[in-house]
Design a protein around this nucleic acid. Structure first.
Lengths: 408, 408
DNA sequence: ATTCTTTTATAATTTTTTTTAAAAGTATTC
DNA sequence: GAATACTTTTAAAAAAAATTATAAAAGAAT
């Protein structure tokens, strides 16, 4: 039994007894990963394996170096327990958060700590071999900079905008030039397992594992930046749909009499409410002489982008707040459709706009009150992410660990 | 180990070994229920238990009378297998399909055969103790008529319109007078386990188990009768949401400039497209002298109801078809929202309107083509149920068996 | 007729659990 | 402030359960 046993699933031609043992190890590692240090007795209760067996499995894992003995813990009325925890340095996970204009890289240890983090700006996403090569380059140089041997990396998790078929490892919207699909392409070059998903869904995984969706079963995560993304946790599981196309919230119909959307349809939610529209409207108003803090940006020759707008809002800029409020009215309308259909217990707002905090939550709440059947909507909590800009990156880690530690 | 072992789950104070044995039995019974007769060798592969153990478990089940030896089957190149199947008369399930104006009752055996079926017309649903008493009465007299001893009944499955919290066994919209919730109330009187769910969700379970959704993982089932119901199978599981309120498809916003809905909101899908609206529009037109086959109904003093309208459509009545087409345009719009959000592989249309077959499918398809992003919608098959009026009743059976045979 | 399959039964072995006991505490009582 | 009773944790032995390996039975294919 080699250290790799964790992600060596669905092995063929391997005895059933070996598979069973792997599953037992995985149950224990899983519990320690998701719940932190635990005693043999606690593990026994959690994984439903007998105490002598758990003890011997833990011994094995210790001898592999995967678990550490944390010494004795607090007694709860009897002999003090011996605590065990994951050796956080046993393996690492690479997180890659691909955005339209920036690239975020991170390396996580098994305690979910980012032992390395890098934000590469002006790294414009384009569908070219060149992009792929320099992406791999960035990752490779991160690896060699850290000096961690390759076999120590459990897997690479990637988050990317657009239509993604996670099951097949395909990115349809971006980087479709990658031969055999993005996941396969990257995996081959890096010599590692690669897991791919859409940014909004990855964020949802991040929220479920590390954010406000912990212990919740039905949660919607909105990624409000320049576009509108949606990741759904339903019945405790990420929902991707048949082809991984689920979550096209930005293109649901809101206003039949509305504007043409770039997708070809009329009155999509994204024609009414998105970071792009918000910025565009504000820029136009500034050009027309609208008094707002953002007018200074223009004077100082700084770019009015979404980050600037949110900053102005947080500084109380009346005009920007007004503009956001208008958008939130539509967003609330759209959310009501989601809530009526899915009856979630929580909606988490993430993305750049989430930085606006109550300035988004309040107007969206008002809109929901107006448009929703209260019996249903009153069961749904609306909050902002507290992972914020980290949620996609944290989500890649969550995605990898979810996949590696999944049972059966 | 008594025959009841099947639904005696989550027993407390019972040794782990007993629970494990129950789980093993359940795996075998489950396989035989969902896949029909099988040999020991087939069961071994399906349930992943060793052959000697499976053989002994099957022996046990035979001795309880739960399984039958079907004799030898066809060889596939060696010794002929001994086939085993569920004893379909070992236990029975009662199905109760509550509608606004009729009540459908059935008794199923373990081969899903309706050994008894009764449609009680003019059994108007009202929120009264009287209704409950006569409902129980109907069930009781069915039981005594059949002469099957009470302990032979595995459970009662109920389908009812409106908001239902299946987990808690509560029906909010109808029959809320039942003490401690409908499921508990009925269970106590009948001395049986009772499982409750909303009609559209029950239909979805029926389609998943017996209809066109077999082997599909992401399927939406529309119940198009007087209202619009939606049952969703997502990731292979029924989605109910936090409180069982999921599926309020009839009350998503379609036309912001539209009519007031009875729910208090404006422009709900149900204000534009529902059996009720269809009938209402046609009645008004007939009153104004519109030429249509349905005008004869009025002359003959027969009621123009949804069944009559569908009949006229099937006879080619131009006006009725036109009216349906109009409705389907809106329905398609609504469906597009669903498809964009959930990326299902199939949408099944059920309910009274499903009898219209291609007369619904075609215009809805056209509307979807118009309003949907084709990359997503082209992955979704749109079909009519072939269970039709039986789907809710079949769904109650599916619901009971799903619950009884669920693993862990 | 012989060889090859598949199925099933039995025996041997391994795995896992249950049982029991020991170790190491806490709480309480005198 | 020890002594005693009660807990919880862990280790070891005994028992049970489940699997693997082996063999036999029954038929198919050549």
């Amino acid at each position: 039994m080699r250290p790799q046993f964790l992600y060596e699933k669905n092995l063929q031609g391997v005895a059933n007894s070996v598979k069973r043992k792997q599953e037992q190890y995985r149950k224990i590692v899983r519990h320690l990963y998701y719940n932190g240090a635990a005693s043999i007795a606690e593990i026994v209760k959690a994984v439903k394996i007998s105490q002598p067996l758990v003890a011997s499995l833990v011994d094995d894992l210790m001898s592999y170096g995967m678990l550490l003995d944390k010494g004795v813990g607090e007694s709860i009325g009897g002999r003090r327990p011996n605590l065990f925890c994951l050796n956080s340095e046993y393996q690492y996970v690479i997180g890659v958060d691909i955005n339209l204009h920036t690239l975020n890289l991170a390396v996580f240890d098994l305690s979910n700590k980012q032992i390395f983090r890098e934000e590469i700006k002006y790294f414009d996403l384009e569908n070219s071999e060149d992009y792929l090569i320099s992406l791999i380059d960035k990752i490779e140089s991160m690896i060699s900079h850290l000096g961690i041997p390759r076999e120590k990396f459990l897997a690479v998790g990637i988050s990317i905008p657009g239509l993604v078929d996670a099951k097949q490892g395909l990115s349809h919207t971006h980087l479709s030039v990658a031969e055999n699909g993005l996941a396969h392409f990257m995996g081959e070059r890096l010599g590692m397992n690669v897991l791919l998903d859409n940014d909004a869904r990855t964020m949802a995984l991040g929220e479920k594992a590390f954010g406000k969706a912990i212990d919740k079963e039905n949660v919607l995560c909105l990624n409000l930046s320049n576009g509108i993304g949606l990741g759904m946790i339903l019945n405790g599981e990420l929902h991707s749909g048949k082809n991984g196309f689920a979550g096209e919230f930005g293109h649901i119909l809101i206003d039949p009499e509305g504007k043409l959307c770039y997708c070809g349809k009329i009155g999509c939610l994204e024609t009414l409410t998105s970071g792009k529209i918000l910025v565009k409207n504000i820029r136009e108003a500034v050009d027309k002489g609208q008094p707002t803090l953002l007018a200074n940006y223009k004077k100082e020759n700084r770019k009015i982008d979404l980050r600037a707008v949110v900053e102005a809002i947080l500084q109380g800029d009346q005009f920007a707040i007004d503009q956001l409020n208008q958008m939130c009215e539509y967003l609330g309308k759209g959310l009501v459709t989601l809530i009526h259909l899915l009856n979630p217990e929580m909606v988490i707002i993430g993305g750049k706009i989430a930085h606006a905090g109550k300035f988004v939550i309040d107007p969206v709440t008002m809109s929901m009150n107006k448009y929703a059947m209260s019996r249903i909507s009153s069961e749904t909590e609306l909050v902002c992410s507290d992972l914020l800009d980290d949620s996609a990156l944290m989500g890649t880690m969550a995605n990898v660990m979810r996949s590696v530690l999944s049972l059966d």
